[in-house]
Each structure stands twice: as C-alpha cells, then as structure tokens.
Write a protein that binds this DNA or RNA. Sequence first.
DNA 1: GAAATTACTGCACTGAGTGCCATCAGGGGT
DNA 2: ACCCCTGATGGCACTCAGTGCAGTAATTTC
Lengths: 239, 239
Amino acid sequence: MSAGEKAEAAPAKPPMREALVAAAFQLFLERGYEQTTVDDIVALAGVGRRSFFRYFPSKEDVVFPDHERCLADMTAFLAASEPDAEPVGRVCDAARVVLRMYAENPTFSVQRYRLTKQVPGLRAYELSVVWRYERALAEYLRARFAARREGTLQADVIAAAVVAAHNNALRSWLRSDGRGDASATVDHALGYVQSAFGAAPPRRADEQPDDVVVVVSRRGAPLWRVVQEIETTLGRTTD
Amino acid sequence: MSAGEKAEAAPAKPPMREALVAAAFQLFLERGYEQTTVDDIVALAGVGRRSFFRYFPSKEDVVFPDHERCLADMTAFLAASEPDAEPVGRVCDAARVVLRMYAENPTFSVQRYRLTKQVPGLRAYELSVVWRYERALAEYLRARFAARREGTLQADVIAAAVVAAHNNALRSWLRSDGRGDASATVDHALGYVQSAFGAAPPRRADEQPDDVVVVVSRRGAPLWRVVQEIETTLGRTTD
DNA sequence: GAAATTACTGCACTGAGTGCCATCAGGGGT
DNA sequence: ACCCCTGATGGCACTCAGTGCAGTAATTTC
C-alpha cells in the first residue's frame, strides 16, 4: 500500500504476490500454518480474498512460491543439454539448479523447512512438488536411455536416487540453519550416487582408458563391503 | 462381495468399512472421483455421513483402505529381521511384502491404478503413502548403517532406489491389467538395485569364507557394469 | 472520449472435515 | 427384571478451502 516502488526492475511483477507471501509467512510463523486462514492472510495484506486464489491455486502454494519457476528452469536446463553429455552427471547438475534456488534465500528456505517439517499437509504437498522434479529427471534419462534394454527402469531408479541424495544433503544443510556449504554437501551426496551408478565422473583426456584394476576379496566379507571397496578404488581416481 | 465368509479368521472386522469401500469405488468408477461426494457414498452405503469419517480420516483414504495395515506389516517384517541379515536384500524383501498386497487383489489394484493415474489429488495422496514406506525402509537402513560414515545418505538413497524400482515394476504390471507375473517383474527390477548397491544373496554356511576372488576391469567400463560382473561372480555361487 | 481489456473485489455456493450431543445396542452386575 | 456403563452410530451445526459469477475501478487503445 504505502510502498512507492518504481516499476522498472521486474517485468511488471505484481507486488501483490510478494505481499501475500510476506503476510502469509508472518502469520504462519507467529501462529502456525493451520491456525491461519486465508481470510487472515488477505486481511493482513489488505487485499480481497479472491485475489489470493488468483495468485495461488491453493493455500499450500503460497509456501512454495518459486517452485513453478524453478521446475521450468530445471526442465529448460535439461532440454538445453548437449546430446552427448553424460546423462547421470547431467541430472546431478540439474539437481544443483534446484539447490541453488534454495541457497539463494537461506533464511526463507530455513523458515519453510521448519514449517513443512511439522505440518503434515505441507509435507504431503512438498512431496508432490518433489515428485515433479523427479519426473522431469526421469523423463530426461528415459529419453537418453531409450536404447538400453532396461532404460526406463534405470532412468526411474537413478532419478529417485539423485533426488534422494539431493534431499538428504539439502535437509542436512537446512538443519544447520543454512550455515554450512550447501554446494559442497550436495556435491558429496551426488558423488555417492554417481559412484553407485557408474556415471564415470568426466575422465580427463590424458588418462589411460585401459587401466586395469585388480580387487582381491575374501568371500567371508559381505558383498556390499567388496563393492564399497571397488567404488572407492574406481571412483576416487578423479574426484 | 458375495462371498459368505464365516467370521472366524478376522477378529470381528466391521462390515461397514467394506461397505463404504464398495460403495465408494462403485461411484468413483461410474462418475469419477471428483464428481462423487462423501454424501453420495454414505447414501449408497446406507450409513450416516459421520460414520464415513470415523473409518476414513479423509475422502482420499477410502481409495487406499489397506495401506495402513500393509505399512504395519512391512514395519513388522523389518523389525523381525535377524541382526546379521544383509540389509539391502532385506529391504528388497520388504518391498516384496508390499507387492504381495497389490497382487492379492489384482482387479482392485488395477481399478485403483486407473483412478490415481488420472486424478491429481489421488496421485498426491499416493505419494504421501509411498513416502511412508520409503521412510520405513530408510529408517531400517539407517539403523543398520549406523556404523558407516555416510550411513544416512546411503540409507536414504538405497531406500529411494528400492521404492523406485518397486514402483516401476508395479506400474508395469498394473498397466498390463494384472495379467503378467508381478513377482518376476519386481524381482528383476530389484535385482538391478541390488546390483547397483551390492547386496549379496545369502551365502550358505558350508562355503569357504576365505576364498579369494579376483576381479579385473578396464577403467573405461562404467562402474555399474563392473559391479554387475562382481555380483554375478560372487553371487552366483549360491543362487 | 468511448470502448475494450485487465486487475481487483464481493458474494453466494459447494463440499470436506470436525465437534458435540442424542440415540441405540449389548454386557455385567445387583 | 432393572440399571449402568461402554461403544458404535446418526444428526446437526459449524469452519474453512476453493469456485463461479457479477460488478467495479484502472489502464490501454482507437
């Protein structure tokens, strides 16, 4: 109302949207999500109730105001991939696009994390948001794996693993109130996925592609230990 | 519906619950989920509206009437694991517990699949159901991986991969109207996950624990191929 | 300056979900 | 038989999210 903003930076971005988000979070933080009605929000923002649902299809959407744009960004990022790019590494980079969105507003992301952590309805909504990211990754991988026999299976599994690793790192960062290094955390988590699915981290041109690795194992050790050994042996060479 | 079961197996299961599910699905199938109100359902079932919400906390829950029990079954299955069981194989078996629930009622599962596929609200609800399964698997793995450095990360990623593989196989089976072999499909999908994360099939006691295995690999091959090679070399000895 | 387009508001309505109380069945105990 | 207690049910009124429709103000366009 009283803010005399000059309309020049954003291409006619409606300030009402931001006002609604601000009013909503103010109320959510001071009395909780479920104790806040949409009428409360629009009353604080000084707008009509109908306008709220013009900008946000549901009450939950106001908690994730930028995910629609972020999903579009990620999809565009994947669509802009070079056709010979390494697929697993590419979807890992796509996950980093999402992480950047979170890292841009640490305080907002932490507030939202606390909210979604304790409101079951918001957790469920977040799942549907994350699911759309996962589907976008899986669709990209399916297209790239079309030639493989188990292409869609591998695509779905790898997409799920990438999202899980991303979320694990993201939550760990959010739990630290956004103080740690988000990029490093997520890089590490995605490195694990890449090592598991053999997305060979891009090998330098000067390396010998025909190197031979010899692994010796007692059969008494569980297989997963052997595999871990091999993973570190093979994976560490370039990391 | 017409089966005149003697009340001896189940401990006094309320028939009202079944009646509500039957009435709900009848209406959902003939006019669609969103075109059916709770009042319609209770009118057809001949019960009071309040009773519906006594048995199902929300309208969505009537579509997944047995998932609560199934989740309890799966949790119990994991809790009953022997402490030295191979963790990844164990969560794969837990996923098979869920699959069995679907396979018990193929026609019902297929009907529900068609419904959830085209109703966004139900898809979102299914995500929250699946998420609880995934969390149960992840919690089990976290406990088993407590000693590892990256235990929680590995647990989350593996749980997500198992769920993704299970869902991929399950959907493939549902898309075939429940005609194919659900177990074989899911076994194959879970085999991929096990090969990626190195879950060893249980080894017999009469084997030599001190055998030595040598694996040779060109570095040019993707890691997952190497892992597959190792898995067959080590795993085939007992399977 | 009129017309058209757009952004916003108000109002009434549907439908999900909840709290409260009345009712009715069965089971013991006396 | 009687009463009491408990648990399952039904009925009602209420809140609140979300929608359709109509009306109004602001901005653009000719």
